[in-house]
Design a protein around this nucleic acid. Structure first.
Lengths: 107, 107
DNA sequence: CTTATTACCTAGTATAGCTAGGTATGAAAG
DNA sequence: CTTTCATACCTAGCTATACTAGGTAATAAG
């Protein structure tokens, strides 16, 4: 993936990956990589600030937990988060359709 | 369209809209609006600098012309531009598929 | 005792699209 | 004739956001 492709779509991806159930940051990175077939291999410096931003915005809620001596911060979608996800999915569909229309247009 | 959705995809859109034939900047804005069904209503401050950047990069070539007393700068795809467009289309397909996979994944 | 993996964090940087302002012509409205 | 609207171009500066590059810390393997 080239540089700026994600801009404006990262929130959608994070909310989407948390739709299946709560995850901690590191696991979210792996889930995104796996679910995208390796296309989204996001650095931690991308994910962690985004998770904080989303929590601050009330779309996620977090809880510290312990697993084999390592602390984890587990995030889950809030009600607002689920609503935002629906909205973002629709917006994405609109965007993707519009791009396809422009690319496909021959005249 | 919300804020940053276009980031990293604008070049594709501009190259794509010029695929059908040369256009000047203002006409490119209208073509993008029309072809996208009104989704891409881009301000001039977005298009003009992008056209300049693409020309500087050798993907576009421009030529001044006159039409009913108004000067126009008409842009056309170069050979490199056509190659870049093919590449961008493929990249877009990869990106869109990956987003769809993440959004569609339920587990 | 070093390296790798897991797991978190953030200050600063880069970039690209957008805002908001400007110039100028021709046509229509008043 | 003056104002407004549409056409047509331009750019300095703002802002948002993903990323770079650095840091901390625990466990396990070599």
């Amino acid at each position: 993936m080239k540089g700026e492709a994600l801009k404006g779509h990262l929130d959608l991806l994070i909310l989407a990956v948390l739709q299946a159930g709560p995850l901690h940051g590191y696991a979210a990175i792996e889930a995104l990589r796996r679910n995208s077939g390796g296309v989204f291999n996001l650095p931690e410096g991308t994910i962690y600030p985004a998770l904080h931003r989303l929590e601050l915005g009330g779309l996620l809620a977090s809880q510290w937990s312990e697993h084999e001596g390592r602390r984890r911060r587990v995030y889950r979608l809030t009600r607002s988060g689920r609503a935002a996800l629906s909205c973002d999915i629709e917006q994405w569909a609109t965007f993707a359709r519009a791009v396809a229309a422009v690319v496909g247009a021959t005249g």
